[in-house]
């Protein structure tokens, strides 16, 4: 059994705790958070060892891996300390506040051959996997344009401060919400290398962006648009989508469905001319425990298996997440120039 601990018990950390707790290959032993309220609940209702200092936890607990789900600014010191103690690390997104920190952590994990993963869970959604596969198979021909979008109701009124309101702590829409879309674009269509025309908009927040609109050019010279707004309460929850226009057709993909338009039928893919819609029910990754979307469980099952087999996975490595951090920096720099 792999021994596991979780540091940071906000919404993501608690969700990870339930997923790890339900995994039969894992002996979940310890948690760390600064909230005494949260720790008390765990003390009272579980057998977990609770800590309010991650250094104490990592020094005392013999752990095979940790999950880090603290506010972004703490990722660097925690992940570094864990890697130095030869502990495998799953870290929430965005990976780190600066790419310098990310480079250091990535190199450290590589040099010690430690399994590393970052929580870009969209790659564990079957429809996005299918989009990736169809693009690799060149089903819509040469890509001419893409749109990467995410909308949701996170900040929908003017309100007091949390760590999310501080631009130096990675709290805005770009580093929190848009990171998902950037990472999807980067891994499914191509790495962004140039950023233009960025608009960062504060709608209800003070000091941080609630929306980001930007033009991206990818390493393969494909260009497209990033449109992300987390102050849009016409959406019940976060809705992320990619639209890819090719010379032979178009694909619109979100977490629930993938719509494929082809100018000519594809016999190899068994797709008709015109529109075909396929649903997540055909592509969902089966999981042993479900909490709030297969993807959240599937990414942890994947990580746990990689730790068990001592084999680094190909999805959501530190290196990939570091690249997303770099693109976020490019977008922020571009916004300043504008």
């Amino acid at each position: 059994m792999l021994k596991a601990g979780i540091i940071g018990l906000g919404k993501m950390g608690i969700s990870h705790a339930a997923i790890v707790g339900a995994n039969p290959d894992v002996h979940f032993t310890s948690i760390c958070d600064t909230s005494s309220l949260v720790l008390d609940v765990f003390k009272k209702y579980t057998k977990l060892n609770t800590y309010n200092d991650y250094i104490k936890m990592l020094d005392k607990e013999p752990l095979d891996f940790i999950l880090v789900a603290t506010p972004t600014k703490f990722h660097y010191p925690i992940v570094k300390y864990a890697l130095e103690k030869n502990i495998h690390v799953f870290c929430e997104k965005p990976f780190s506040l600066t790419s310098q920190q990310g480079i250091e952590l990535t190199e450290l994990a590589l040099s010690k051959s430690l399994i590393n993963q970052v929580g870009y869970h969209n790659h564990f959604i079957g429809t996005f996997r299918e989009l990736h596969r169809l693009l690799k198979e060149n089903v819509i021909g040469d890509i001419v344009h893409f749109t990467g979008e995410a909308y949701g109701p996170v900040v929908t009124k003017e309100k007091g401060n949390t760590w999310r309101s501080n631009p130096d702590e990675g709290g805005g829409c770009t580093s929190d919400y848009a990171a998902h879309v950037i990472n999807l674009i980067q891994e499914i269509i191509g790495k962004p290398v140039h950023v233009n025309g960025t608009l960062l908009k504060s709608i209800y927040s003070v000091g941080v962006d609630d929306a980001v609109y930007s033009l991206l050019t990818l390493e393969n010279n494909i260009s497209g648009v990033l449109l992300v707004n987390w102050s849009d309460d016409t959406y019940r929850k976060m809705s992320t989508s990619l639209t890819v226009q090719g010379k032979k057709g178009k694909i619109v993909c979100d977490a629930t469905e993938i719509k494929i338009y082809l100018k000519e039928p594809s016999s190899t893919e068994n797709l008709d001319k015109g529109w075909t819609t396929k649903y997540i029910t055909d592509f969902a990754i089966p999981v042993n425990y479900y909490l709030r979307g297969e993807e959240y469980s599937a990414q942890i099952e994947y990580f746990v298996n990689n730790v068990k087999n001592k084999k680094q996975g190909t999805y959501n490595t530190f290196e990939q997440a570091l690249y997303t951090d770099r693109v976020i920096e490019m977008i922020m720099d571009n916004a300043k120039q504008n």
């Binding site: 608690i14 969700s15 705790a17 339930a18 997923i19 707790g21 339900a22 609940v41 765990f42 209702y45 579980t46 057998k47 425990y289 479900y290 909490l291 709030r292």
Partner: peptide, 15 residues
């Protein structure tokens, strides 16, 4: 389900 399954995963059966 989100609450049932959360408590189930966390092992908080008392709740």
């Amino acid at each position: 389900n989100v609450v049932t399954d959360l408590l189930l995963g966390l092992g908080m059966m008392d709740i």
